[in-house]
Nucleic acid binder design. Structure first.
Lengths: 153, 153
DNA sequence: CGCTCTAATGCTACAATGTTGCATCAATGC
DNA sequence: GCATTGATGCAACATTGTAGCATTAGAGCG
C-alpha cells in the first residue's frame, strides 16, 4: 500500500534520517512514513493513532520529541491548525510553501498546493521576515454539502 | 482615558454589549475596553493580567466565557497565534481583514493593517470559504535588532 | 561478535490552556 | 422591591505540551 498517492515519496525514511545524522529508530521511521502517506497535515494524536494501528510501540513524549527533531532538521514542518494543537507535514521541495484550508466543522486540514502562502510581505521597518502561514477557513467539500450550521467551535 | 490611541474607539463597551442583547457586567466592560485600548491582539493571560491591574475581580473561567461570547457576537475575533493559545482583538469595521505578524522570539503578535489577509482563494470544488488568516513569522523590530539566534520554538 | 558511547526512549511528574457542571449572585424588566 | 434568568465563581477535569532522569538500543570499532 504505497502506490496510490498524489504526492510521490521522494526519499525513504531511512535515508532522510541518516542524511541528517540521526539514528534510525522504529519511531522515526514510522512517523516519517505516516506523514509521507498522508495527503494532509496530521496532529500528534493522529500520528500516534497511526503508530498504534501499525503496532509500533511508542510513548507520547517520544512522539513529541521525534516530531520536534524532524522539524529542527527541516524534514517536517509545523503548522498552527485552527485548534490549539500543532499539525505536521513532510516538507516537500516542489510545493514547499502552500496555504492550508481548515474546515471549521470537522477540524480537518487540507493542503492547497495551488495557493501560494505568501504574496508580498510589506513589513514595517526593522522586521525580519521568515515565513508566512496562510490558513483559509470555511467548510470542506464533505461538510459543506451537509449545510453549514452553528459555524466554528 | 480614551484619547491617545491609534485606533479610535468606535462604540462604548456598554453600547456594544447592549446592542447584542447581553448583560452589562464589569468583566465584559473591562475586557472590551482592554481590547480596544490594545494595539495588538491579546491572549487570555494578558487580558486577565490587565483586569487584575485594573482591580477587576474575575475568574479564569468567566474570562474564557466572556471572550467566547464576544466572539460569538462578532464583537471580537480570535486568531490562532503561533503558540497554542488563542489571541483576541476587537473587530473593527475599517480594517476588518488584516494579516498578523508573529515574532518567533518574543511571541508578540502585531497587526499589519496594511497587509490584506486574503487575495483570491481558489478553492477546490465543494469548499465554502468563510475567512482567511494570514500570519507572517519572523522577528519583530525589537527582537530583530538583537540578532536572531535559536530561531522559533 | 562483543564492547563502548551516547542518542533515543519510556517512564513519571508537571505546566499551560481550555472546558464542564452546578450552586450562587446580580443585571434587567416589571 | 421582586422575580427572572443570564452571568459569575468555584471545583474538578480534559487536552496539549515539557522537564528530568534512569534505561534501552543504534552505530562505530576492535
Amino acid at each position: 500500500m504505497s502506490s496510490a498517492h498524489s504526492h510521490p515519496v521522494a526519499a525513504s525514511a531511512r535515508e532522510l534520517i541518516v542524511a541528517h545524522g540521526g539514528r534510525v529508530t522504529r519511531t522515526r521511521i514510522a512517523v516519517i512514513e505516516t506523514l509521507q502517506r498522508s495527503a494532509h497535515p496530521l496532529s500528534h494524536d493522529e500520528i500516534g493513532a497511526a503508530l498504534d494501528a501499525a503496532g509500533i510501540v511508542h510513548d507520547r513524549v517520544t512522539l513529541y520529541r521525534a516530531l520536534e527533531w524532524l522539524v529542527e532538521q527541516g524534514i517536517a514542518q509545523r503548522i498552527a491548525g485552527g485548534e490549539r494543537a500543532w499539525r505536521f507535514e513532510i516538507r516537500r521541495e516542489d510545493a514547499h510553501r502552500h496555504a492550508h484550508f481548515h474546515c471549521d466543522r470537522c477540524g480537518q486540514i487540507v493542503c492547497l498546493d495551488d495557493v501560494p502562502a505568501t504574496p508580498s510581505p510589506a513589513l514595517p521597518a526593522g522586521f525580519e521576515f521568515d515565513r508566512a502561514e496562510l490558513v483559509l477557513h470555511g467548510a470542506c467539500a464533505d461538510c459543506g454539502r451537509q449545510g453549514i450550521k452553528e459555524g466554528a467551535r
